[in-house]
Design a protein around this nucleic acid. Structure first.
Length: 566
RNA sequence: UGGGCUAUCGCCAAACGGUAAGGCACUGGACUCUGACUCCAGCAUUUCAAGGUUCGAAUCCUUGUAGCCCAGCCA
């Protein structure tokens, strides 16, 4: 080993020092002190909607932690409230979680509803300990008894029922003897606690609802605060990582864990939710947009549900990278959408082919190019990754170029085509603009040029340089395509709803370009293939319906451009 | 105005009493057969504010200020 290699090694060691987040610090300490010996984490969605980008943070945080500590990660459906839950959502969540962490297998999937029997017994245990009671107060009465944020609550008149009576009543609740809402089981804690969650919280309610998993087996269902710690304990979860709004629930979580005397008590840790700037992440808002028909469904590419991002062309790798770059903390924060775009650009740029497509075409005629001749140029699929090989691209006398790549009267520092200027046609020849034609509407229709055969791409020509390079597509062989440019649908700076109650929708959230042309090689792509359209950004084949006479592409992200006229 | 939590660059986020990492964004410049990519340079004399302790404070103490969460038989 020579000195250089030694230096490199040292360098790598120092560069490896990556900062650890506060959760890793907690786990490190727990392991060191022997509180736990194996890390078990979980992601516990309620199947009442589709997952969005914010959930991806929780999924990845939990699964990565399990991986890092050679532990186990569970996907657990927190399906304790049948009034809101649907199998449609279970299916979508399963699909999305599998997509985000590609190594999830079915053994890691759990259902809270599978523990209903055990939960019922745990509730009885609480009753026997004198720590829970059946309460006959109505919902409104209970609200009155609860007190306010600044005033303590009053104890329920049913609080001191005997253990026997409570056991009997609870049994009859379960047997279906009482109407929905007529009685609940409550934990007996402290009505004067400054923490509202500790004021004798409801832990079981009566609800005659068909459950997607247990059918009509139950008519009493446990509440989150009671069920969750039990679910964690049953599964051996060590670190129950949730979002900040549950911080006030931690004392109750710990109360349940303690009163039920679990051998290895799970520990709840809270972190701040991920918000994205100018994007709707609230589940109820997304739900409303779907229900109101403002978007086409939960996977409409203008949303940031996982399904929508997937359809828009984001890769799981890009989402993972985004979460890694974002970090974890307890401070309320909102990540910049630009960072997500950076991640998908970064992920795609080396691994997807770069092809030519013209989104807003005008014709370019090469006056000195032979009539009816088509030549096939060798073009690299990705100049930065030669392993991606080459392809043949047809070239002829008549081409399409981008409307914005020609200006009759160019502003200063415009490097593209204008009368008298010479530019490179990418992967082909230099052309000089000699003339142009304008249609009745005053818009340019055709640009006339001459080309210089000596300047052919790959010929090594170095006689002169040009400032601009533009892309093109051969008119005779080009295929037609439809391009959809999606923007995130709602501008949250203005709020999701306007004052009159209408949804504040970005009117330009979807732009459809119907007259785009793509090079022939692109026409062979299958649905969900992604490409970089040279100088246009990254696109994904969204639809290739044989009934249509063209392909449909969605834009993932546009490219940066440092040219801004005026 | 009860309780809980948070406050470090436009946006995330490190720093754990020893003299403010990094990424995104942005701005210059170099390179260029993509005005992309890449590269190089610049971007917090200061950590919500004011006091205090200390040789030394983003870190400890005091007093304020601002934001978020909690009064579902939702999760």
């Amino acid at each position: 080993m020579n000195n250089l290699e030694i230096n490199m090694e040292n360098h790598e060691e120092t560069a490896e020092k990556v900062s650890r987040n506060f959760i890793q610090n907690i786990i490190d300490k727990d392991l060191e002190e022997g509180t736990y010996h194996k890390v078990v984490t979980r992601f516990p969605p309620e199947p009442n909607g589709y997952l969005h980008i914010g959930h991806a943070k929780s999924i990845l945080l939990n699964s990565n932690l399990a991986k890092e500590y050679q532990g186990v990660f569970h996907l657990r459906f927190d399906d304790t409230n049948p009034t809101k839950e649907k199998t449609e959502f279970i299916d979508s969540i399963l699909e999305d979680v599998k997509w985000i962490c590609d190594d999830l297998d079915t053994e890691q999937v759990y259902y809270a509803s599978d523990y209903f029997g055990q939960m019922y017994e745990f509730a009885r245990k609480l009753i026997k300990k004198g720590k829970a009671f059946v309460c006959d107060l109505s919902a409104e009465q209970m609200r009155e008894y609860r007190g306010t944020l600044t005033e303590p609550g009053k104890e329920s008149p049913y609080r001191n029922r005997s253990v026997e009576e409570n056991l009997d009543l609870f049994e009859r609740m379960r047997a279906g003897e009482f109407e929905d809402g007529s009685r609940v089981l409550r934990a007996k804690i402290d009505m004067s606690s400054p923490n509202m969650n500790m004021r004798d919280p409801v832990i079981y309610r009566v609800a005659r609802r068909e459950h997607h998993n247990t059918g009509d087996q139950w008519c009493v269902y446990p509440m989150y605060d009671f069920a969750h710690p039990i679910e964690d304990a049953i599964e051996g979860v060590t670190h129950s990582i949730c979002t900040m709004e549950f911080e006030d629930h931690r004392p109750l979580y710990n109360w349940v864990v303690q009163e039920l005397e679990f051998e290895i008590p799970p520990k709840q840790i809270e972190f701040a939710k991920m918000y994205l700037t100018n994007v709707v992440t609230g589940k109820r808002y997304i739900k409303k947009l779907v229900e109101d028909g403002i978007v086409d469904g939960w996977d409409d590419p203008r949303l940031v549900t996982i399904a929508a991002l997937r359809r828009r062309g984001f890769t799981p790798e890009s989402i993972r990278m985004f979460m890694e770059l974002s970090g974890v903390s307890k401070a309320q924060s909102s990540s910049d959408y630009a960072m997500l775009e950076y991640c998908i650009r970064e992920d795609l740029k080396m691994k997807r082919p770069r092809m030519m497509a013209v989104l807003d075409p005008i014709k370019l005629v090469i006056t000195n190019y032979p009539e009816n001749e088509i030549e096939y140029l060798d073009v690299s699929n990705n100049q930065e990754n030669e392993a991606m090989g080459t392809r043949k691209v047809p070239f002829g006398k008549v081409l399409y170029i981008e409307r914005e790549d020609f200006m009759p009267e160019p502003p200063k520092k415009y490097f593209r085509l204008y009368p008298g200027n010479e530019v490179r046609l990418m992967n082909a020849y230099f052309v000089t603009c000699t003339d142009y034609a304008v249609g009745q509407d005053g818009k340019v229709t055709t640009v006339y040029c001459t080309y210089d055969p000596e300047t052919k791409s790959g010929s090594g020509f170095s006689g002169r340089k040009v400032k601009g390079t533009i892309h093109w597509v051969c008119a005779e062989t080009a295929e037609k395509a439809e391009i959809r440019l999606y923007e995130n649908i709602v501008d949250e700076e203005k709020g999701v709803y306007n004052e009159d109650g209408t949804v504040n929708v970005n009117p330009n959230s979807l732009t459809v370009l119907k007259d785009a042309f793509i090079e022939p090689a692109l026409a062979e792509a299958g649905a969900m293939d992604s490409f970089q359209f040279v100088r246009q950004g990254y696109f994904i084949v969204d639809s290739k319906d044989s009934a249509m006479d063209h392909m449909v592409f969605n834009r993932i992200v546009s490219m940066k451009s440092s040219y801004r006229p005026k």
